[in-house]
Amino acid sequence: MADTSIDYREDVASGSLAGDVRDYIALLKPRVMSLVVFSGLAGLLVAPGEIHPLLAAVAVLCIAVGSGAAGAINMWYDRDIDAVMSRTQDRPIPAGRVDASEALSFGIALSAGSVMLMGVAVNWVAAALLGGAILFYVFIYTMWLKRSTPQNIVIGGAAGAFPPMIGWAAVTGDVSVASVVLFALIFFWTPPHFWALALYRCGDYAKAGVPMLPVVAGDRETKKQMLIYTVLLLPLGLAPWYLGVAGWIYGLTALAMGLVFLAAAIAVWFDDSDKSAKRMFGFSIFYLFVLFAMLIADRVNGPWM
């Protein structure tokens, strides 16, 4: 009987083995997509005006597909460093389960399709924002900033901050101060979120040659920058309340969550181990989820909030 394991290893080594459905789903970075979709949905729900439920579903679908498409192209471009880093070695391309050219084609097709569908079915302002977010993530962050500057996360974080603006524009057809505030909320949240991860994954980034802030400037400077951004984030989290986009329950929740986030950053500052950084990274995801969940709850419950 022929040794099929040898053939399988050869296929993996050559990158010719076609991936199954799960591998193509993995290319879309579903965990990242879930937060992107949730923030986009929040922007859509809190925007003034009305949108047909079917069009709202199409808009959210386009945000999800566009986010996943950008993730697939990111995995195509970063396949060399993904193969080096222990956190990413089992991704479909470096593991040999999906051919790199197929991943690129997959990402481009989904990008174009999501933008066109958003434009035709919803409006072209939302489509332009979606297209801009994809292009920014692929060309500005992935291909330029990520490998060239320790500020990669700061500037590149703009790509992940677009979804609430896209959701807002899907309803209103424009960009307003309130939607820019939602953008800014994610923009200023991104650095402390990712630097917390980078602190305890510093060796991985150094091995791959990615100039994350802990690699280039050291832990102390990274912790200082995390603290600064967390301080700035505290009043920014209250801005939807100031602007009348959300009610007082949201405001109290945002204040409480912001203070806990700040306490987490202070704990990281005084902790020489990785424990506080890991806790802050986990809490940062919960923090953003709670704020956008409260925005949605405020919209759904109206005067009660």
Rank of each mutant, 00 (worst) to 15 (best):
L41G: 00
R79N: 03
T88C: 04
L54I: 04
A42P: 07
S39E: 02
V58P: 08
P94R: 00
A42T: 01
A95S: 13
V98P: 12
V115N: 12
S114V: 04
Y77E: 05
G113Q: 03
L41A: 01
S86V: 11
S101Q: 14
P92A: 02
A69I: 03
S114P: 11
A70S: 12
I108V: 08
I108R: 05
A95G: 03
A83P: 15
D99F: 08
L110G: 14
P92T: 01
N74H: 12
M85Y: 00
I93G: 03
V84L: 07
A64C: 14
G71E: 14
A47P: 09
D80Q: 09
H52G: 03
G71P: 11
G107R: 05
G113A: 04
L45W: 00
G113R: 01
A100Q: 12
D99G: 12
E102Q: 14
V115Q: 01
A57R: 13
V84E: 09
N74P: 10
D78G: 06
N74M: 05
M75S: 08
L55G: 00
I93V: 06
R87V: 06
L44G: 04
A109K: 11
A109W: 14
D99R: 13
I108N: 02
A69S: 14
R91M: 09
L45M: 12
G68D: 14
A64R: 00
I51Y: 01
L117I: 13
G96H: 10
V46I: 05
I93Y: 01
A64H: 06
D80C: 03
S105H: 15
I108A: 01
V84A: 05
G107Y: 11
D78Y: 09
S114R: 02
V98Y: 10
E50C: 03
I93Q: 02
S105D: 08
E102D: 13
G43Q: 04
G71R: 11
L44C: 03
G107E: 06
M85G: 07
L41R: 00
G66D: 05
G119K: 07
R87G: 10
P53I: 07
G119Q: 11
C62K: 10
A83E: 15
G43M: 02
C62V: 01
L44D: 01
V58F: 02
